[in-house]
Design a protein around this nucleic acid. Structure first.
Lengths: 250, 250
DNA sequence: CGGAGCTTTGTTGTATACCGTGCGGTGCCG
DNA sequence: CGGCACCGCACGGTATACAACAAAGCTCCG
């Protein structure tokens, strides 16, 4: 919530900082990244001694890291003796989106009421300028878009200025990283998503709280349906590369 | 989230169970209770060795307990060297209620759509029967009412059947315990609150999602205003008994 | 007499040792 | 040959020891 842990991602820490980080933070950041990126697949068993040895930390900080991951819901104690990486299935995605809808709709509304209008006007312009094809490599434009989304989320948090809401959203976003990995997003959906974000940002910048909330609702509705669709379509192919099996095995 | 910790309150654990609990769970449950009940006041410094000795556990499980409390936002690292019990002021209460509104409105809506209608019809009847004066001692009726609220929350969680939403609500409710302690509730408000809950339960039981959501909105609006009012009214008297000072001292 | 640096002490972060428990393997008995 | 019981091993939970760091006080020098 407030200064719980200082560093959540490895990506945003320089090498200098990484070595100075507490061992428990390093373990948490590494495991979080590995779970989110799919290196550690759902159902993977995380033994304390094994992981401590692998990450080069002792068991005490590793236990702390596992505790935080468990609080986040990325890891669960399958039995009193064994903790595993949790699985995400379509029902989980629906549940996550129910929470996300509740929180982000409120956030959009609050941001429209009290946020910095010019900041969101700028964001709306940025969304309007997004070129998904990136003038060349397809991944470039997509990465730039995802970075812009991250900026948008940050601006939203700043505008809402509610630590409790931000903390709740953080949990949701943590899970969303895994959800996005499950669903290969198709170009058409991405283009629509850009337009939807542009509208939300514009609504906030003009202090139209209702429009901001409803546009958010629509955006999340579309995003959820797209994800579920891509899931059922790609299920056989994705089955072994995804975080999708192993749910019944628990 | 799913089976994070097994025991959250000391009250609902028998003595047999308490001694068999893990030391870290005992420490967490005890500290949580002491913070929520106000025994540990905001700003109170929680030294590791000191608390470990006091609670009769060693530093390792105590650190785990402090970590969980920090994740809950009940405790914060004021400086890298000292963790303190967090304070709650009027702004925090407003923020908490913004999150609560978002989550509970959605929960009410979802419960109306897919919950067990008869369970909420029963609850509505129970609310209708509540006698706050309890036929005798005033506290009796109030305690019975709070127990009914807890039942209602449980029924809501069961009806919504969304682990992520329940987890988010758990955090909110954890803070609400402290908020309620700050605001001495007046009899008139309590009576109104009963009626509001009755309406929400009735709306859910008749699957009227809009009414359930709007009634929840109204209820939370009234509850928030009542709390803030009681806070400003009682601020001087409550100032030293409450979790209300020490915010600027951080 | 004042300031700066060093030392000392207390506190946190990490590692490791100990102990109890649960699970698997093996051997014996039916 | 099969089932049951016992033994051993490995893992998790806890305690404790150790190291690093920060703050505060004291001393010495200017």
């Amino acid at each position: 919530m407030r200064a719980v842990g200082f560093m959540y991602t490895l990506a945003e820490a320089s090498n200098e900082e990484v070595v100075r980080m507490r061992a428990s933070d390093r373990a948490y950041a590494t495991l979080l990244d590995e779970i989110q990126s799919g290196v550690l697949r759902p159902g993977a068993v995380l033994g304390e001694v094994e992981q401590a040895a692998r990450l080069g930390v002792s068991r005490t900080p590793l236990r702390e890291a596992l505790g935080r991951l468990a609080a986040d819901g990325l890891v669960a104690q399958q039995s009193p003796r064994v903790t595993v990486v949790t699985a995400i299935d379509a029902d989980d995605i629906r549940e996550i989106f129910e929470v996300r809808r509740a929180l982000e709709e409120s956030a959009a509304r609050l941001a429209a009421e009290r946020g910095d209008a010019t900041a969101f006007a700028d964001l709306a312009r940025d969304f309007a300028r997004v070129d998904l094809d990136g003038g060349g490599a397809g991944a470039d434009g997509r990465d730039a878009y995802y970075a812009l989304i991250a900026d948008f989320d940050l601006a939203l948090d700043a505008a809402v200025a509610n630590d409790y809401l931000t903390a709740a959203l953080r949990t949701v976003r943590t899970h969303l990283v895994r959800v996005r990995r499950l669903a290969r997003d198709n170009p058409a959906r991405l283009a629509a998503s850009v337009a939807e974000h542009r509208l939300i940002a514009a609504a906030i910048s003009t202090r139209d709280a209702d429009l901001a909330a409803h546009a958010t609702h629509v955006h999340l509705h579309n995003a959820l349906h797209s994800i579920l669709e891509s899931l059922t379509a790609a299920a056989p192919a994705n089955f072994h590369d995804s975080a999708f099996d192993l749910k019944g095995q628990l």
